[in-house]
């Protein structure tokens, strides 16, 4: 199986309020195969989300090398990897980040304005059905519960059939039942579509359901 995500000696620093440089990631290396499920855990503020953002080309890094589906990510210009984000990577954030002015269906179809995939609405409807929101697609985010919004966000992330799904605390804002439902959903997708799943989470329940668990501590990533 090929490596769909490859990180080699990634380092990233931030400057703190006192003007000091803080190294958040130190020589982080990681390889993720297609279809693998992976969770990254660690204490609050350790840089988990930063690492996920780097993998998703939402943030840049200071040193090292990154490849997503064999494409090298070298430039700090985020526009260069827009296509990668469009078609290869899907995101689910802790806050769903749905556009409040669009319906659930319109939110899910938003990426297809760019990708122009055929039968986009059909695909969206299928996704709605698969997450159990078939009858809620014409509601606005303000009319949905937190869990429902998160599921809509998941559909949006999957509309273009990405190879990789990156989820940053996907169940962080959900109650237990909703969290479990979402977890099952993610695993089902992994199984059915060979979707590579990388999650950042505090939740041991979610982490334990992943095939591999990493811990990020003091900028160093270790496999558990």
């Amino acid at each position: 199986m090929s490596d769909v995500i490859k990180l080699e000696n990634i380092s990233k620093s931030f400057v703190n309020g006192a003007g000091q440089s803080l190294e958040v990631l130190k020589d982080v290396s990681l390889k993720v195969q297609q279809g693998e499920t992976l969770s990254i855990m660690g204490p609050s503020g350790c840089g988990k989300s930063t690492l996920l953002n780097i993998i998703g080309t939402l943030d840049d890094f200071d040193e090292g090398a990154l490849e997503i589906t064999d494409q090298k990510v070298t430039s700090k210009n985020v526009d260069e990897y827009a296509d990668l984000r469009l078609s290869t990577i899907g995101f689910v954030f802790q806050k769903h980040h749905l556009m409040p002015q669009l319906t659930a269906l319109e939110n899910v179809l938003l990426p297809t304005l760019k990708s122009k995939i055929p039968n986009a609405e059909k695909r969206a409807n299928e996704l709605f059905e698969s997450v159990g929101l078939g009858d809620r697609k014409n509601h606005h985010p303000g009319q949905l519960s937190g869990g429902e919004c998160q599921r809509v966000a998941l559909c949006r992330a999957l509309i273009n059939s990405p190879k990789v799904l990156l989820a940053d605390e996907p169940t962080g804002a959900l109650d237990e039942e909703s969290a479990n439902q979402l977890t099952e959903l993610l695993l089902k997708l992994n199984k059915d579509e060979n979707l590579t799943l990388v999650t950042v989470t505090h939740s041991k329940e979610l982490a334990n359901r992943m095939s591999t668990i990493y811990e990020l501590k003091n900028g160093v990533l270790d496999k558990k």
């Binding site: 939402l58 526009d79 827009a82 984000r85 469009l86 980040h97 556009m99 938003l110 990426p111 760019k114």
Partner: peptide, 16 residues
């Protein structure tokens, strides 16, 4: 701003 972030994360370029 967050809408801009969403669109960027979904693959829209800065120009778009």
């Amino acid at each position: 701003r967050s809408e801009m972030g969403i669109m960027a994360s979904l693959g829209f370029t800065s120009k778009e």
